[in-house]
């Protein structure tokens, strides 16, 4: 067991359970492995995602918090910054060194002082306000840019379907 990483993950878990931010829950999937978490994010109010519940999986590297975790939505999420396979593309999840897209400010990227809570809050605000400079899902980005009503309709339909309505 990597004591540095697991201690910190446990600390964060404790913090998130006792004082969770609105619309977010997160915790290790399995007590044996603090390095795989599941998170639930509520769709932000006032967006087409409102009412939806978006489960996601976070995987932490063993040298966390030096390196960021990866995050993947477990269901499909139609969003310009979410790859079709569910992987979230957001600057806070990118290690400080690499900038594959050459548009991110260093200050937005991962640093050990960030935390799961901050990631989830960032993702929540990303859901509300897509960043179409770096579309992970090009189709969704184009639809969002050009045919907003259709985009919103599709998202709402997805949300309803995911809730079993």
């Amino acid at each position: 067991m990597n004591s540095v990483a697991s201690k910190r993950l446990f600390q964060e878990y404790k913090h998130l359970t006792t004082d969770p931010p609105d619309g977010i829950t997160a915790g290790p999937v399995n007590e044996d492995d603090l390095f795989v978490w599941e998170a639930m994010i509520l769709g932000p109010e006032g967006t087409p995602y409102e009412g939806g519940v978006f489960p996601a999986e976070l995987k932490f590297p063993k040298d966390y918090p030096l390196m960021p975790p990866t995050m993947r939505f477990l269901g499909s999420v139609w969003h310009p910054n979410v790859y079709p396979n569910g992987v979230v593309c957001i600057s806070i999840l990118h290690a400080p060194g690499d900038d594959p897209n050459h548009y991110e400010q260093a200050s937005e990227r991962w640093s050990p002082i960030q935390s799961v809570e901050k990631i989830l809050i960032s993702v929540m605000s990303m859901i509300a306000e897509p960043n179409d400079e770096s579309p992970a899902n090009v189709d969704a980005a184009r639809m969002w840019r050009e045919r907003r009503p259709e985009f919103e309709k599709r998202v709402r339909a997805d949300v309803r379907r995911s809730l079993g309505l």
Binding site: N2, K7, V29, E31, E38
Partner: peptide, 30 residues
């Protein structure tokens, strides 16, 4: 089994176990 999804929130009984691990890790045990 590690990656088997099981919502942690429904297993509060797992907490002591985690805590023990962290303690042990803290104490430098394997």
């Amino acid at each position: 089994t590690d990656t088997q999804p099981a919502p942690y929130a429904e297993r509060p009984e797992a907490l002591p176990s985690i805590r023990e691990k962290v303690e042990a890790a803290n104490a430098g045990k394997q």
